[in-house]
Simulated scan of single mutants.
Amino acid sequence: MNPTSLAGKRILLTQAQDFMGPTLVPLLTEMGATVITDDRVLTDPGLPAELVRSAGHVDVLIAHLGVPAATSTAQEGTEEEWRIAFAAMVDPLPRLARAVLPQMIARRAGKILLMGSASALRGMKRASIYSAARGAQLAWAQAVGVEMAPHNVQVNAIAQNLVDNPTYFPAEVQAHPKFKERIKWEMPLGRLVSAQEDAHFAAYLCSEAANCFVGQVFPVCGGWVPR
């Protein structure tokens, strides 16, 4: 048996139309998984439980949560910007966990993969609110990963930056001369990490071959090392 195969796996993916969703869905399907998708931002407290209940058996939950980053300075950031970021990207995590972990613990098998951001791993100007929410996500994944390990349930996170995706790096951003200059000095690859490269790594972490990883945060950043 190929340990990286996803054949027969039922994978629940949130916010499937955003961020990495347009690449993850076809790739995971091609690799044999049944992908159950939902396109909504999970700000309604009841939605996570509803999603898991509708999905039934879930082998892998990909906690794929994102909103456009607020770019206010620290002194200008508003309560509303903070609330939007945490309501969309942090608050759904414990709700999803409460809904999906009982069945995984009962089976002694299952995975949660958080698709997060490396903005939490190094200081970035005008990103304090967004980085704080993304940092809370990573801390959650690390803590829950250690807690779930004895149950043979693996919880890990990808912390990505400068990965090609329509939410944070749409075509108009990539075409801007300042962005092209940024790529030259910040990316040893000389390009963004492709969506396919990132999605293939996510698929590996969803497979049985990755059972040895628990509570890990994997930077996918195309060259720079998080400080």
Rank of each mutant, 00 (worst) to 15 (best):
A171Q: 09
S207H: 12
A85G: 06
S128N: 01
M89N: 03
R98V: 12
I105K: 07
H176M: 15
E76M: 14
A120P: 04
S117R: 00
Q142A: 07
L114G: 10
Y130T: 02
N211G: 10
H151C: 05
G190W: 11
R107M: 10
L93S: 02
V193L: 13
R134P: 01
I84C: 05
I112P: 05
F169Q: 09
V153N: 10
G190K: 04
A139V: 03
Q103L: 00
G215R: 09
A199I: 04
L205M: 14
M148K: 00
P150R: 10
E208L: 08
M187K: 14
W185F: 14
F86D: 02
L113I: 05
W140V: 00
V214M: 15
E79G: 15
V163A: 11
L162Q: 12
G116C: 04
V193P: 05
L93Y: 02
T167Y: 06
W185A: 15
I129F: 05
G116M: 01
I112K: 02
E147F: 09
V144R: 03
K180L: 13
A88T: 07
G116Y: 01
W185V: 15
I183R: 02
N161W: 06
Y130I: 02
G215K: 09
P150C: 12
P102G: 12
I84E: 12
T78L: 10
K180F: 10
N161P: 03
L189Y: 15
I183S: 07
L96K: 02
A202R: 08
I158Q: 06
I158H: 08
E172R: 01
G190Q: 03
K111D: 13
V146D: 14
V173N: 03
A88E: 08
A88Y: 00
Y168P: 07
L121Y: 00
A106D: 14
E76S: 15
A139K: 01
V153M: 08
M148R: 00
I183G: 06
I84L: 09
S117L: 06
A195Q: 12
K125G: 13
F86H: 04
A132C: 05
E79N: 14
L96F: 07
M89T: 08
A141G: 05
K125V: 08
T78R: 14
P177H: 13
C206F: 12
P94T: 01
F201R: 07
M187W: 13
A157C: 09
A199Y: 06
V100R: 02
A157N: 04
Q174H: 03
E181H: 07
S117I: 01
A109R: 00
P177D: 15
N156Y: 01
V214T: 15
F169V: 15
M104T: 03
F86T: 14
R182H: 14
M124Y: 00
S131H: 00
